[in-house]
C-alpha cells in the first residue's frame, strides 16, 4: 500500500505547556478507512489538525505524500491533498447558493470554469443533493448542510478527507445518510479518516485507532480492538450489540465471539 500520511514521534504542546499529543506514531496508506476515537480532550482533533498543517508539531514530524508539514512551502500541496470537514457546517459556508458554495474550493485552486462546473456537478451528485443546487445553504437541514460541506471538499478532489465528528449534531436518519455518503466516497478510492465518539458508525472501517491522554493506545481492526481492549477505560462506550456479544462470550457461551452488528449476533445465536 502506498503511504499517504506518516506521523513519527509527534509531540504537540499548547502555548501554556499542556501536552496534547505525546509520541504519536501513525501511518495511513492510500485508500484506507481509518476511524479515530477517544474521549473529549484525548487529542484526536489535535491529531487530525496536524494532517493538513493546521497545527504544526512541537516535536517529531508529520508528512503527507512525503511532504513534511514543517516546511511552509509544502502547505499548499498538503492542503490540496487533505480535505477537512468539521462538526458545525454553519461556520464553513460562504456561498449564496449551494452551487456557489461547492464551487468555492475549485475556484480557489484556479481551475478552468468548465472543469469547475464538472467538479461541482460530480460532487453534488455524489452527495445526492443535485436538486438543492439553487437553495441557500443556510435554509437547509443539519444533515443537508453537512452534505453540502462535504461536497465542497469533494470538489477539490483531495486524495484524503478527514471527517471530524461530522455526525454528532445530526438526528439518526441524517446521520445514516451522511455516513452512507462517506462510505460511497471511500468506495471511489478516497482515503477516509473519520473521527467520532460513536463506534457503531464505524464497524466497517479497516482500522480503529483509539486515543487517550494524547497517545495512541490501540490501533487494529475494529474487531481486534473490541476483543483486546477494555475501551470503557478510555471513556468510550461500546456499541450495544458489541458489548452484549462480549458479555455473552465472557460468560462462557461458545461460538459468539465479538459480533459487530445485530445481524452477526443473530446469526451466531440462531444459526
Amino acid at each position: 500500500m502506498t503511504l499517504m500520511i506518516e506521523i513519527q514521534d509527534l509531540l504537540y504542546s499548547y502555548p501554556d505547556g499542556t501536552i496534547a499529543l505525546d509520541s504519536v506514531d501513525l501511518h495511513i496508506g492510500k485508500g484506507e478507512f481509518v476511524v479515530i476515537a477517544g474521549r473529549n480532550g484525548s487529542g484526536k482533533s489535535s491529531l487530525v489538525r496536524h494532517m493538513n498543517a493546521l497545527l504544526l508539531p512541537s516535536g517529531g514530524c508529520v508528512s503527507v505524500n512525503r511532504l513534511c508539514t514543517l516546511q511552509k512551502k509544502n502547505h499548499p500541496d498538503i492542503r490540496k491533498a487533505i480535505g477537512m470537514v468539521f462538526q458545525g457546517p454553519d461556520s464553513q459556508f460562504i456561498g449564496m447558493t449551494v452551487e456557489e458554495d461547492v464551487a468555492f474550493g475549485p475556484e480557489n485552486l484556479g481551475l478552468p470554469p468548465l472543469r469547475i462546473r464538472e467538479l461541482v456537478e460530480i460532487s453534488l451528485e455524489m452527495m445526492g443533493i443535485s436538486e438543492l443546487r439553487f437553495h441557500s445553504p443556510r435554509s437547509l437541514s443539519g444533515g443537508q448542510k453537512q452534505k453540502v460541506a462535504i461536497a465542497g471538499v469533494l470538489a477539490m478532489e483531495p486524495g484524503c478527507i478527514v471527517f471530524d465528528e461530522v455526525t454528532s449534531m445530526l438526528d439518526p436518519f441524517s446521520r445514516k445518510d451522511v455516513l452512507d455518503a462517506v462510505k460511497r466516497i471511500h468506495a471511489k478510492g478516497t482515503t477516509v479518516i473519520y473521527v467520532t465518539h460513536r463506534l457503531e458508525e464505524t464497524i466497517n472501517a479497516d482500522r480503529l485507532v483509539i486515543m487517550d491522554s494524547g497517545k495512541v493506545v490501540a490501533d487494529a481492526s475494529p474487531r481486534d480492538v473490541f476483543l483486546q481492549h477494555d475501551l470503557e477505560m478510555y471513556g468510550i462506550e461500546l456499541p450495544p450489540v458489541v458489548a452484549l456479544s462480549r458479555m455473552l462470550t465472557r460468560a462462557g457461551f461458545p461460538g459468539i465471539g465479538i459480533a459487530l452488528t445485530k445481524d452477526e449476533l443473530l446469526e451466531a445465536l440462531c444459526p
Partner: peptide, 25 residues
C-alpha cells in the same frame, strides 16, 4: 427502536421465547 430491542424482536421472530420489550443491555 434501540438496537437491543430490535435484536430481541428478531430473536423472538426466529422462535426464541424471549421478552422483546427490553432496551437495556
Amino acid at each position: 427502536l434501540p438496537e437491543i430491542t430490535c435484536l430481541m424482536k428478531e430473536m423472538r421472530r426466529k422462535g426464541f421465547d424471549v421478552r422483546d420489550d427490553i432496551f437495556h443491555i
